[in-house]
Design a protein around this nucleic acid. Structure first.
Lengths: 130, 130
DNA sequence: ATATTTGCAAATAATTTGCACGTAA
DNA sequence: TTACGTGCAAATTATTTGCAAATAT
């Protein structure tokens, strides 16, 4: 027993390589396109499975963009933080925000709402793109 | 000229009626299911078109949920505010948050990031559900 | 009248799945 | 070996579109 998965295969390495290439979110189609450009043939379904696999391992974060497409990015365990996404290059910066605790209090006071979780994203221009 | 659309049709009234029924987000499928339950026959494509139409008119807000499904809710012009979504009943409460201005400043100072827009959502239990 | 809206069926797009074959350990 | 991974093609799901018929103004 103690069946642990984890085979280091070429397709997986290449897919992870694409994510490692830039700190931004990639859709399965983008990863696949990138690999094709590198003359690496991988099935699109494998890209989907691998991205989901990375997420299960906690190595990647998922984000459903406003068109409904799922995108992934390498992202540390993420002790709660938020993302600032550049509209120019897509680069993502982590934003720690402890001030959120205050929101939680006012939410309870003003709305009687008990906070379990929250998401925040900021869009704009990173230092390099503006 | 001055071609203005806007026909008050029965399907549109019924679809709007569903949204009016609860202050929460509905997917096209949910609206359609609801109407079917009310013995109102409307094409699913009409639901899609009508929801999108309501959004264009500024009467409804769209939200792509974590599964990638588009959902809509009636929502006032929305002088910038955020949503507190109940995990129990889905009810949505508006959360005004002027404190965000402060975030904008620290973002610029800490990351050199110029903020254009942002989104925030809070999940938890509303007063009625906890 | 006539411009807009609807229903229906077919087309897309993103994602998932079944399965025979390939491969890491 | 043999359990896990991959490719491929077919199946799902959510959403969109073309077009003739229905409807609001």
């Amino acid at each position: 027993m103690a069946t642990r998965s984890e085979y280091a295969t070429r397709p997986r390495e290449r897919i992870a390589g694409v994510l490692r290439g830039a700190r931004r979110f990639f859709s399965a189609a983008e990863v696949h396109r990138e690999l094709t450009a590198q003359h690496v043939r991988v099935a699109l379904s494998t890209v989907y499975r691998t991205l989901e696999h990375l997420r299960e391992k906690g190595e990647a974060t998922i984000r459903v963009d406003d068109t409904g497409e799922a995108t992934y990015m390498f992202c540390e365990p993420a002790q709660h933080h938020h993302h600032a996404i550049c509209n120019g290059c897509g680069r993502v910066e982590d934003v720690d925000c402890s001030a959120v605790e205050q929101f939680a209090d006012s939410l309870r006071n003003l709305h009687g709402f008990l906070l379990d979780a929250h998401t925040m994203e900021f869009y704009g221009r990173c230092a390099a793109c503006r």
